[in-house]
Design a protein around this nucleic acid. Structure first.
Lengths: 168, 168
DNA sequence: TATTGTTATACTCTATAACTATA
DNA sequence: TATAGTTATAGAGTATAACAATA
């Protein structure tokens, strides 16, 4: 092994590849800092914060399946996380009046407070790490692109994997 | 709990916040698909693939510390992953001639083959999920922005955390 | 039969601290 | 003293499969 040769891989457009790697590295570092901030300011993992924030941003109560959407990729994983959040007094779980199979997860006042406690530092991290080297127009363009990408991903049919929960 | 009120959180500029959330959701979904592809095509975790790809892209051999940079955030975590890669025959570890404290990690032919086996599908996932809804100019701009962000992050001094390994 | 959610279990991964060896 | 790396260990998280209950 003296010099691995990675050329000859079909279908690589250098510009896309560089963009992809830069994006993934930048976001990976960002995620790491965010993880630390959420833990330090709110004693939660990022996943827990996302679930809580999602709940807070959607009216306060969702079924387990709705709550999982896009954040957690297995049912049992959500049950585990919801159990932790409930034990911490940040959400409650109760029966749904609409569907007796469903569980309604409701954010508590303490849960909302926790999100509020975390958010400012959260935004500060994003601003310092992500937005600082970008112009206002960059940010607009980035937001526009990412909204398109996100919607495109949401619309993607599951490929070979078993169909997962979809939003109603 | 009827309707959590998240307003009144200081320092939030709605445009930045939306951009941030769109970015994080899009990348999170992308990471999940990438994880599945790397596992399916190459029987590796994303971290293992990143380590291997980094090694392949940097001339084939790096010290443990150099290899860790930006991918793994603790020394022991890298030792663990390097141990797995070595057991799988994808890298070898040996003493460094320059510094007897260092360990040189060298990618094997099998390691390079593995990266080559994974890359095409990898790029395909990125193209299908990330690049499809973007124009060529979008991609150029995104790449430009992310390169700036990445470099900015690399230049950031560690805040309150203990200083980590830095590239030489 | 399909769907919602939980449980049990096994596995992967990560981080902290203690340790060895070299600079 | 500081740095490179390993080891032991403990904890968090995830996924799979089996299960119960309802649609």
């Amino acid at each position: 092994m003296t010099k691995p040769d990675l050329d000859g891989v079909p279908g690589l457009e250098p510009e896309q590849l560089e963009t992809y790697f830069a994006l993934m590295e930048a976001v990976s570092v960002l995620q790491h800092h965010v993880e630390q901030q959420v833990r330090a300011d709110g004693d939660l993992s990022t996943v827990q914060f996302q679930l809580l924030a999602r709940l807070a941003g959607t009216g306060g109560r969702l079924t387990m399946t709705e709550l999982a959407d896009g954040v957690v990729y297995s049912r049992s994983g959500l049950t585990y996380q919801a159990g932790l959040l409930e034990k911490a007094g940040l959400v409650t779980r109760g029966p749904s009046p609409d569907d007796d199979r469903s569980t309604l997860v409701t954010i508590t006042e303490a849960g909302v407070d926790r999100v509020k406690r975390i958010l400012p530092g959260h935004v500060q991290v994003a601003r310092r790490l992500l937005f600082e080297p970008l112009t206002e127009e960059d940010i607009r363009e980035l937001g526009d692109m990412m909204a398109r990408v996100r919607d495109h991903m949401r619309a993607q049919p599951p490929r070979s994997a078993a169909p997962r929960k979809r939003r109603a």
